[in-house]
Design a binder for these strands. Structure first.
Length: 583
RNA sequence: GCGCCCGUAGCUCAGUGGAUAGAGCAUUGGUCUUCGGAACCAAGGGUCGCGGGUUCGAAUCCUGCCGGGCGCGCCA
């Protein structure tokens, strides 16, 4: 029986307004251009016999941390020194000789012990302001992902309880990664897997029925291992106030089930709403139950059977994963006839790859699911798909505290900290920034007191303030009726102006890197650096000048501000944070 | 016991095998105070948990310890 009406497979109505404009700007990154120059020069030197032949896969283009070493550098000569049996600096010189300077690169030079350094041409940098403005919301986006279909599945908390603060990290990491993959040119689908089938669901139904009966003063006990939390009482009370006593007259089994459906829907709605509150939206809410209704479950199991990874033992049915290199087998159907969660997971992943044909699937899991990673990949292999198409991203647990007091976030204990508290106390933007700026694999301790106190001295405001500042500048420009669409960008020569442009131009390659490594935590740090570059510029360069004769410079700087505002906004948007006009 | 992850400035954290290990907060001192000071500049603060190894080069890779987190079920 149906499937809950958690509206499986049906997008909720909040989702998928396009976050960003289409990919109409596909400029290759400067890094790529330099890579090509290096490789071309190398092979030319080789064909001339100046350098020995070797295979090179990676030209090793880096970003020096000191600008004195250029905008880009290349350490390839150091890596080639051994196989070429030559002094790395000599190799560097040979390669550098063959790289012409042009309007983009103003200088190419070598440095000990064997680097080739590249400096971008200031006039070219200045002209990029127009490129950035023209790209608008597309700036930073690329076609790197080539429209591959990628699914990002995250949170997927059992709908037997409300979403709590312990789930926020996964929600932020998942949604941020999805945004980034989207910007990197992947066709991204954000999915929540609703576990609306199985044993835990039955327990939830029975617990709710007991609470419902209690609402009418009847004696009823929560089943053993059932859901004791106060939220179940609220849920029962809510349903009572809406549906009255209509379930009392039904047979126990029927009542439990119908009431359960109601409860399940309420829980899913509640989860959806809380996620929405922290800036998380989905394209799909996928029902576990639907796997059984559609026959996908049986189909997937049959494939496992036919492939020979199936065995009956001790009354249970096993997936013989050890035959595929796993350290042990896993039960699929228990001896009492119930399927395990893992069984559904197999069918679910079969659905992802076979039925819905995703090129790649990324699952964001808490570190407590570590033990499932290998067996899931093994199952995908057994189903006949390349396990490399499946990525599991694990994030470490977060512990919450208030000052010295540890706060528990257990669903069953009833002592739940709601996301509302977190959002009200700390703020959505700060929460998102905080969770996103830490690498997934690091353990986190979230001190609510501290987060609250620091709100005034927070990088979040620092970044948003950069955006607000530009808005205020435009306000002034408008008051003075300054028209700056035709500015002469070559007037942008100040060190602070160029530094800001350099920083903005780093965004496209950053997005690619993040998409490649599935690491979204670099973005908040980049945004902070971008804001620093802007504030520094603002400090040093008066934009709307009162000095006579500065009219053209004012226009050029207004253009620069326009570009900066756009790039800051793009970053904030990618992080699902607000970009305020004033604060 | 076995497996995965973490250990970097007082605190919270960055750091694709490369050049002098960086930010924010906190501390101290300064700038400016005509586009919003929620700003800018500067200083102090590090045996990158400890010991070996790999190499031209290690915070980064390998290995052994120490410390912490999470797993190891016919639970999810």
């Amino acid at each position: 029986m149906p499937p809950n009406s958690a509206q499986p497979n049906q997008p909720n109505n909040l989702i998928k307004e396009p976050r960003t404009a289409p990919n109409n700007i596909m400029q290759p990154t400067t890094r790529l251009k330099i890579s090509e120059l290096v490789l071309n020069s190398l092979s030319e030197s080789q064909s001339k016999g100046d350098l020995p032949d070797t295979e090179v896969e990676d030209p090793a283009i880096e970003r020096p941390n000191n600008i004195e070493n250029g905008d880009f550098s290349c350490s390839l000569p150091l890596k080639l020194a051994r196989s070429m049996q030559m002094n790395p600096l000599t190799i560097a010189d040979k390669i550098a000789e063959g790289i012409p300077t042009d309007e983009v690169l103003s200088r190419v030079w070598t440095a000990r012990p064997g680097f080739i350094n590249f400096a971008l041409n200031p006039p070219w940098l200045a002209q990029q302001v127009d490129v950035i403005i023209d790209a608008g919301k597309s700036f930073g986006r690329s076609d790197f992902g080539q429209d591959q279909r990628v699914q990002v599945e995250f949170v997927s908390v059992n709908p037997t309880g409300p979403l709590h603060v312990g789930h926020v990290r996964g929600a932020v990491i998942g949604s941020a990664l999805a945004n980034i993959m989207d910007a990197a040119g992947y066709d991204v689908q954000r999915e929540y897997y609703v576990n609306d089938a199985g044993n835990q669901m039955e327990l939830f139904y029975k617990s709710l029925y007991a609470r419902y009966l209690q609402q009418f003063g009847k004696d009823a006990e929560i089943p053993e291992n059932g859901y004791q939390g106060d939220y179940m009482i609220d849920l029962a009370a809510d349903i009572k106030s809406e549906d009255g006593d209509k379930y009392l007259s039904l047979e126990t089994e029927d009542a439990t089930h119908r009431l359960g459906q109601r409860g399940l829907n309420r829980m899913v709605d509640d989860i959806r709403e809380r996620l929405g509150r922290i800036g998380v939206k989905y394209d799909e809410w996928f029902s576990e139950e639907s796997l059984f209704d559609s026959g996908t479950f049986d189909e997937a199991i049959k494939i496992i059977k036919d492939a020979g990874y199936w065995e009956e033992r001790d009354g249970a049915k096993w997936f013989t994963s050890s035959a595929l290199g796993e350290d042990k087998d896993n039960v699929i159907i228990r001896s009492n006839g119930q399927h395990t969660y893992f069984a559904s997971d197999i069918a679910y992943h079969y659905d992802k790859f076979n039925n819905r044909k995703f090129d790649r699937v990324i699952n964001i899991w808490g570190a407590d699911h570590q033990g499932h990673v290998n067996r899931m990949k093994t199952a995908v292999k057994a189903l006949g798909f390349d396990p490399d198409r499946l990525d599991m991203m694990l994030y470490q647990m977060v512990s919450f505290k208030r000052g010295d007091e540890l706060v528990r976030a257990s669903k069953r204990a009833g002592n739940i900290i709601t996301i509302d508290e977190l959002v009200d106390e700390v703020g959505v933007d700060a929460c998102r920034y905080f969770f996103q700026s830490r690498a997934a694999e690091t353990q986190m301790e979230f001190d609510l007191e501290l987060a609250k106190e620091q709100s005034n001295e927070n990088p979040v405001f620092y970044i948003q303030y950069a955006h607000a500042r530009t808005a205020q500048i435009f306000k002034l420009a408008q008051e003075r009726e300054i028209e700056f669409s035709d500015a002469d960008l070559s007037l942008l020569t100040h060190e602070a102006e160029l530094a800001l442009i350099r920083k903005m131009l780093a965004l496209p390659e950053l997005i690619e890197t993040m998409a490649k490594t599935l690491e979204s935590h670099h973005l908040p740090h980049y945004a902070q650096e971008l804001a620093t570059a802007f504030h520094w510029f603002y400090q040093q360069c008066r934009v709307v000048s009162n000095v006579e004769g500065d009219e053209e410079l004012t226009k050029a700087r207004l253009r620069l501000c326009q570009a900066a505002k756009s790039v800051v906004a793009n970053c904030l948007d990618l992080m699902s944070m607000s970009a305020p006009e004033h604060m």
